[in-house]
């Protein structure tokens, strides 16, 4: 069990991405909504193997449940159709609407859950490092990595600033208008402060030859495992079989 978990988590990021891409494409090759919904369970199974089942299901529910419910409500009531299943005064649920909603939501759930799975089993750091190996310029990778670092930092800073403003007497609770007035005093020190910091960061980066037009080396690299080629070949075979099966049908 631990062996399987390790080998899934240590797969090369682009291989994992190919798995995600394969799941997304296969949804459009295989007709009907049953297969597309089962992709959710396939992803659940993989996330269980990788030991992140709870995180996966939490995120999947948060991201996908509401939108699926709303699509069902909108489409089943308002999709033009004639086969009325259930009706109450001016509202009626139609078979065509339900079919349309099933088709649409199954694809959204499949694509959404395969991407959620991908980001649960792949560290963003690994993904970016593998993209850099593929030839992504280091400026782009720097933007992404520093973005991911700055967000939690600034979230912490927000709480600090809010507390500081409260001690100065800025009200952050109460009527709507009071709360609106508290918005700008919280946000503007945060923004002006972090923007002032960029000037120093420019100096720091330049002193480390960030803009120099030479090949950069990296301290952090991801290695391909022995399973990577196997997984890729299996995916290719599966894709070809699916296409042939679909054409022959």
């Amino acid at each position: 069990m631990d062996q399987i978990k390790k080998s899934i988590l240590h797969l090369y990021p682009t291989t994992k991405f190919l798995v995600t891409l394969f799941l997304c494409i296969s949804v459009f090759i295989v007709p009907g909504y049953l297969y597309a919904y089962s992709v959710l369970f396939i992803c659940m199974f993989f996330s269980y193997l990788a030991g992140s089942f709870k995180e996966f299901s939490d995120l999947a529910i948060k991201a996908l449940l509401l939108i699926v419910v709303f699509i069902f409500i909108l489409q089943s009531f308002f999709y033009p159709g004639t086969h009325v299943i259930w009706s109450w005064s001016i509202f009626s649920i139609k078979q065509e609407g339900i079919d349309f909603a099933l088709n649409l939501t199954s694809k959204i759930v499949a694509i959404g859950s395969s991407f959620i799975l991908f980001f649960r089993i792949t560290k963003v750091k690994d993904l970016i490092s593998s993209l850099e190996a593929l030839g992504l310029p280091p400026k782009v990778t720097y933007i992404f990595l520093s973005t991911l670092q700055i967000i939690p930092e600034m979230k912490k800073l927000t709480i600090v600033i809010m507390d500081a403003q409260k001690t100065r007497g800025v009200e952050t609770e109460g009527k709507l208008f009071t709360r609106i007035k508290a918005f700008l005093p919280t946000l503007s020190p945060l923004i002006l402060g972090s923007i002032a910091g960029t000037e120093e960061r420019v100096l720091t980066l330049e002193s480390r030859a960030f803009s120099a037009k030479v090949k950069k080396t990296s301290l952090y690299t991801v290695e391909k495992t022995k399973y990577d080629p196997i997984v890729r070949i299996i995916l290719l075979i599966l894709l070809i079989t699916l296409i042939i099966w679909r054409v022959m049908l």
């Binding site: 933007i143 520093s146 700055i150 809010m162 919280t186 945060l190 923004i191 420019v202």
Partner: peptide
């Protein structure tokens, strides 16, 4: 370079702005 360093800050402001809105219940 200075404009590139603005991008992560901008993204973070988008997130933090939404977070402050939640905290202040606007």
């Amino acid at each position: 370079l200075i404009a590139i360093l603005l991008i992560p800050i901008g993204v973070a402001i988008n997130f933090v702005g939404a977070q402050i809105v939640l905290l202040l219940k606007l």
